[in-house]
Every structure is written in structure tokens, then in C-alpha cells.
């Protein structure tokens, strides 16, 4: 089956079994390995991408359901929020092993696009689905606040 969608701003036509999770289409068919496999059951957020700007779990999203949609991955995410997030991440050395960080950055960018000045509670609500086994949570929280300041500046 052939599915047409926008991927990181470019129109693509993808040939795949419609039940294939977007995660594996990205990683294996398109060679875009920035989106990570962590659990496969929507429990860890490592596979987070944006669907029309909203964070979703690509491991639980079948490619057949994405006709006409717009997907953004870590390789393509940009704009005011994403740029501020990346720069805050680097400033605070937020990543350790880094394996969860694509998902964290996508989740944080989506949060800041919606809520440019998030409270700690907003951060908890938006980020609790993104597991970091290195437990970099304290720096992620701080980096989101720093990114918010950068956006406001």
C-alpha cells in the first residue's frame, strides 16, 4: 500500500504494509534512526514524533493511518521552541547516554509551543511519559525553563 504524507516538511510517498508502526518505517525503511525504539508499547516516549505538531508515540501509530498528515521527527524539528530547547539542552549538558533525548526534545518542543512559560506542574504533565533511565530529569526540567526564557528573550 502506498501512503502520502509530509515528513519534515517534504512530501513523501511511502510503500509499506499499512499496519507497520511509523517507528519502524522511519528507522528501517527511511534510515532515519534518530527516532528511538525503547519499549514498543507507548510506555517510554523514546519514539516520540510530532503529528501535525502534537507529540505522538510512533511505535503505536500505524503508517496506514497517516495518509495526508504531517510528521516531524528529531531530524527535522525546528522553529522557535525546538531551537530554544536544543540550545538549552546543550548549555546544561542535559543528555547522558542520550538514547531517550530525541523523544524528550520532541516532547519539550511541543510543550513549549503550546505553553511558552510552563510551570513545574505543566512540565510534569507533559514529560511524565518520557522515560530516561539515566534519570536526567532534573536537568531536563531546568533546561525546559531555560528554553522558555530563551524564547521570551
Amino acid at each position: 500500500m502506498s501512503i502520502s504524507l509530509t515528513l519534515n516538511g517534504t512530501s513523501r510517498t511511502i510503500d509499506a504494509d499499512p499496519e507497520t508502526p511509523l517507528l519502524w518505517v522511519l528507522r528501517d525503511e527511511l534510515g532515519m534512526t534518530g527516532t528511538k525504539f525503547g519499549c514498543g508499547i507507548a510506555q517510554c516516549g523514546a519514539c516520540t514524533v510530532h503529528l501535525d505538531g502534537m507529540p505522538i508515540r510512533s511505535c503505536q501509530t500505524q503508517i496506514g493511518d497517516l495518509e495526508g498528515s504531517s510528521i516531524t521527527t528529531i531530524e527535522g524539528v525546528s522553529g522557535k521552541a525546538a531551537d530554544a530547547v536544543r540550545s538549552a539542552w546543550e548549555e546544561l549538558s542535559a543528555a547522558q547516554c542520550g538514547y531517550c533525548q530525541s523523544g524528550q526534545i520532541l516532547a519539550a518542543s511541543a510543550l513549549l509551543s503550546e505553553t511558552p512559560k510552563p510551570t513545574d506542574d505543566d512540565i510534569d504533565a507533559a514529560m511524565d511519559g518520557n522515560v530516561c533511565r539515566c534519570a536526567t530529569y532534573a536537568r531536563i526540567r531546568q533546561a525546559i525553563h531555560v528554553a522558555a526564557e530563551k524564547m521570551g528573550a
Binding site: G34, T73, R86, A95
Partner: peptide, 10 residues
């Protein structure tokens, strides 16, 4: 490693 890890580098 942080820049590459923040960009989903290959």
C-alpha cells in the same frame, strides 16, 4: 556528545 545526541544524528 550532546550536540549529536540532540539532533538524532545517524
Amino acid at each position: 556528545d550532546v550536540p549529536a545526541k540532540s539532533r538524532g544524528s545517524v
